[in-house]
């Protein structure tokens, strides 16, 4: 419950930092689209900042290439607590079409295991699938991260009757 109290202070105007970890730029363009007046994420106080030290939410894109891994760890360590990460796009969520290549780590879940070893804790992660994720999906994901709306999806198990 402590995290919820901390998030309440962030909720009014979350400042976002855009962290690209080797993405193809499609998700990055959609993030820009979400911030433009057309989809206007600034209605909820979302503002793009240039330093991770100023950020409340990190908009994370890309499958984390090996080259960018140390820089990503440094950037995420610089984010003040509570750290909220929004993993955007199928690359960041599950590795995407680079799920088994040699040169990528394979998305944010794999990165989180590495971050644990380095002592960098992530307080909340929200996964936003999509290739690329729609601007509406990004806005919806941010609202889920901050606790404005409840998430729609849950694990489904279907059994075939025969």
């Amino acid at each position: 419950m402590k995290l919820e109290e901390k998030l309440k202070s962030v909720r009014r105007s979350p400042w976002v930092f855009h962290l690209n970890s080797g993405s193809c730029n499609a998700c990055d363009i959609e993030i820009l689209d979400a911030l433009t007046p057309y989809f206007d994420a600034e209605r909820f106080g979302v503002k793009l900042v240039v330093s991770p030290r100023h950020a409340d939410v990190v908009l994370f894109t890309g499958p984390v290439t090996r080259e960018v891994l140390p820089k990503v760890i440094r950037a995420l360590r610089a984010v003040p607590r509570p750290r909220v990460v929004a993993a955007i796009g199928s690359c960041a969520v599950g590795g995407g079409i680079w799920w088994d290549t040699y040169s990528t780590i394979g998305g944010f879940p794999k990165l989180q295991e590495i971050l644990k070893r380095y002592g960098v804790e992530i307080d909340r992660v929200v996964y936003i699938p999509g290739c690329p994720a729609r601007p509406e999906a990004i806005v919806y994901g941010l609202l889920v991260a901050l606790g404005y709306v409840k998430q729609k999806v849950s694990k489904v198990v279907k059994t075939v009757e025969s």
């Binding site: 969520v93 992660v125 929200v126 996964y127 509406e136 889920v144 998430q151 489904v156 059994t159």
Partner: peptide, 19 residues
């Protein structure tokens, strides 16, 4: 359906079980 944002990875999975 595009509103798929989830805070847990398990919520994004769907299983179809065959006998």
């Amino acid at each position: 359906e595009f509103e798929l944002a989830a805070t847990n990875l398990e919520d994004l999975k769907e299983d179809v079980v065959h006998r």
